[in-house]
Computed example of a mutant assay.
Amino acid sequence: MDYPLVKRVSHRLFGEMLRMMLSERVYFDLTLEEGRTLSRNFTAVAFDWRRVDFLYLSPLGGDGEFSAAVRQDGVHVETADGAHHLTWDDVTELAERLAVV
């Protein structure tokens, strides 16, 4: 399976959600609105990465927080399992997949 990816999942309280997977073990469950918000943030930093140093989101549907440093070569996500590098192509692809209607 190629990562990162986004798939739809169901949550017993929040209903339909998006699971943004950075690896088999590292993922973030996002409400649809959180997915759209992160999509807009990813799009903005991919367009002009110099304007933002850091992205942060505390998703409702999961225990982990999304915390990432924005750098010249992409976005570096910090997790309990270590860092995950997202290239600008990864960021753009995630932005498109998280932008649900």
Rank of each mutant, 00 (worst) to 15 (best):
M1S: 12
D2W: 00
P4E: 08
P4S: 07
L5S: 08
V6G: 02
V6H: 06
V6Q: 02
K7P: 01
R8N: 12
R8I: 12
H11T: 06
H11Y: 06
R12V: 10
R12Q: 08
L13W: 04
L13Q: 10
F14V: 03
F14L: 13
M17K: 04
M17E: 07
L18G: 03
L18T: 02
R19F: 01
R19M: 07
M20R: 01
M20F: 03
M21V: 00
S23H: 08
E24H: 12
R25H: 15
D29N: 14
E33A: 12
R36N: 06
R36P: 01
L38K: 09
L38D: 09
S39F: 03
R40E: 06
R40H: 08
F42Y: 07
V45Y: 10
V45R: 06
A46G: 09
A46Y: 00
F47W: 02
D48Q: 12
R51T: 11
V52A: 04
V52F: 04
L55P: 13
Y56E: 15
Y56M: 15
L57E: 14
S58Y: 14
S58E: 15
P59V: 04
P59F: 07
P59A: 10
L60D: 03
G61S: 05
D63K: 11
D63S: 13
S67G: 10
A68G: 12
A69G: 11
V70N: 06
R71Q: 15
R71H: 09
D73K: 13
D73G: 09
D73L: 12
G74N: 06
H76N: 08
V77I: 10
E78R: 13
D81W: 12
D81C: 11
W88S: 07
D89C: 00
D89Y: 02
D89I: 01
V91R: 04
T92V: 02
E96C: 01
E96F: 00
R97D: 05
L98K: 02
L98V: 02
V101S: 11
V101T: 07
V101H: 07
